[in-house]
Design a protein around this nucleic acid. Structure first.
Lengths: 189, 189
DNA sequence: GTCTATAGCTTGATAGAC
DNA sequence: GTCTATCAAGCTATAGAC
């Protein structure tokens, strides 16, 4: 096959960036073209399904990242708290210390295709389940584990919203710091 | 002045609804026209500043609501916990038990005018400060009060995101239920 | 695989009749 | 105060040269 002007990885990175900032509806093909350095028609060559396929690819890429940097480490060796510290560090890098917004959050506003919402919904479910699993492993009851997992996700998403609006990302860093204790240490509920 | 086809209140209500669902960029004039029942040109008559003025009006209306149903009750009579219970009930109604999304969250994606972001930023600051104030009054240290206020906002925004994506609004209701204890009772940090 | 050119529709916004 | 009609610019998407 002929040489590509930009690698798949670079392309997806830039596309994700635009979706993350503008949401599905706000991410126009022109904006995506400018961000990637590819003309609009070339973008359609790489993503024949157009905007919807680009968004799907971004979600798939995010899911893949979570598999490798969240779900896998949670099932690796070491104590639950050790594993959670590693995951927290990964999440901190992924969201660039709170300066990036959550693409899964931002893509689910109205106006997007239903299939996209379904994919994101599934991703959140998997995330929640992974957090729940580690909490169970740390010795919590089923209901406590579920509640803590929700708390963890709420903390991450909420602090990212706060960071976006107020410009202060310290609460996000604190949420991550508290993650090992929240999910990895069975305390009184 | 001649009779209006729709009242200011109805108009703002419908406009807010569209912005809440689609964000600033996704809320098109046509969509706003359909939602309000007014033709596009009539919308420009009511809001000469166009889309930007509509969004500003929505934010102003939200701020007004917060003044009346959050800030005021927090400074009214009764113990901090009693006041917080009242505020939590108001917030539960405002977000329709977690089925509505936060317009302040949704409007701050990229693509919106800077002035809008500034207004929302100010609104969040006021909200944070109000929560901080009641926590101080409940006997917490300055730093604890600030941290708890952030936690409260994170919980509300995060659980609304979770409700939007997963469709489960129970975590939101639980966050509100925990609000009086979080901000109104000085415990060990 | 990328490009220029273009199609057809939607966008935000305005002019002017009633 | 609301409407129909209209504008230029933007949109998603496609056709076809290189």
């Amino acid at each position: 096959m002929p040489a590509s002007k930009v690698t798949d990885e670079f392309l997806l990175e830039k596309v994700a960036e635009v979706f993350r900032i503008h949401g599905y509806e706000g991410a126009s093909i022109r904006l995506l073209s400018q961000a990637t350095g590819l003309e609009r028609a070339s973008l359609y060559h790489r993503f024949p399904g157009g905007k919807e396929e680009m968004a799907a690819a971004v979600v798939a890429r995010t899911c893949e990242w979570f598999g490798r940097h969240v779900f896998s480490p949670l099932q690796a060796g070491g104590s639950p708290e050790e594993r959670l510290r590693r995951v927290a560090a990964n999440l901190r890098d992924f969201y660039r210390r709170g300066t990036l917004w959550c693409v899964l959050d931002v893509m689910t506003l109205g106006g997007g295709p239903d299939a996209l919402l379904a994919r994101v919904r599934a991703a959140y479910s998997a995330w929640l389940k992974a957090f729940e699993g580690i909490a169970r492993e740390a010795g919590m009851s089923a209901s406590t584990a579920r509640s803590r997992a929700q708390q963890a996700l709420i903390g991450i998403e909420g602090s990212l919203v706060l960071a976006r609006v107020t410009g202060d990302s310290r609460p996000f860093l604190r949420v991550l710091q508290d993650l090992p204790a929240l999910l990895g240490a069975a305390r009184s509920e």
